Simulated assay, not measured.
Amino acid sequence: MLSLQDAKNRFSAVVEAALAGRPQKVSRRGKPAVVVLAAEEYERLVKAAQTQRGSFQEHLMALPADDVPRAAARPRDVEF
């Protein structure tokens, strides 16, 4: 893993490595921050995620209807 400063100093090499199929992890203040990867690989990952994910409606319809415990609270009387 490269520090941010090292990645800045060697940006061309970081890009070349990513284009060669070796994603480059970069840390900031000692913690993982970003990964530099080739645009083709990024597009492949996005496309794969989209094909695995259904629509929001499909997600809602897949939720278990009877298995979810419902609150037994009753509305309270309110005086106006």
Rank of each mutant, 00 (worst) to 15 (best):
A39Y: 10
L45T: 01
E43S: 15
L2M: 15
A18K: 08
R29W: 00
R44V: 11
P32I: 03
S3A: 01
L19A: 02
P69L: 01
V15L: 05
L63D: 03
T51D: 14
V35Q: 06
L2W: 10
R44C: 10
L19Q: 08
H59N: 09
V68Q: 04
M61D: 15
F56N: 15
V26I: 12
V36S: 02
G30C: 08
S12F: 01
A49I: 00
L2Q: 14
L63Y: 04
A65K: 08
R22M: 08
P69N: 03
G21N: 08
S55Y: 05
M1K: 09
G54E: 12
E16F: 01
L63P: 09
A62C: 03
P69Y: 04
H59P: 00
D67W: 05
V14S: 04
L60D: 09
V68I: 12
A17T: 02
R22T: 04
P64K: 01
V14K: 04
M1G: 12
D6E: 15
L37C: 09
G30T: 08
G21Q: 09
D67V: 00
M1A: 07
V35G: 01
G54D: 13
Q5L: 06
Q50M: 13
P23T: 11
P23H: 12
P23E: 11
A17K: 02
A49H: 00
P23L: 13
R53W: 00
P23D: 12
A39H: 06
K8N: 13
P32G: 07
K47R: 14
V35F: 03
A17E: 04
Q57T: 13
V15K: 02
F11V: 01
V14I: 11
S3M: 03
L37G: 02
L37H: 06
V35M: 04
T51V: 13
K47H: 10
H59G: 08
V34S: 11
Y42S: 14
A18R: 11
V14M: 03
R53L: 05
E16T: 07
A49G: 02
A39Q: 12
A33P: 02
G21Y: 03
F11G: 01
P23G: 12
A65G: 02
E41V: 05
Q24V: 14
M61S: 15
Q5F: 00
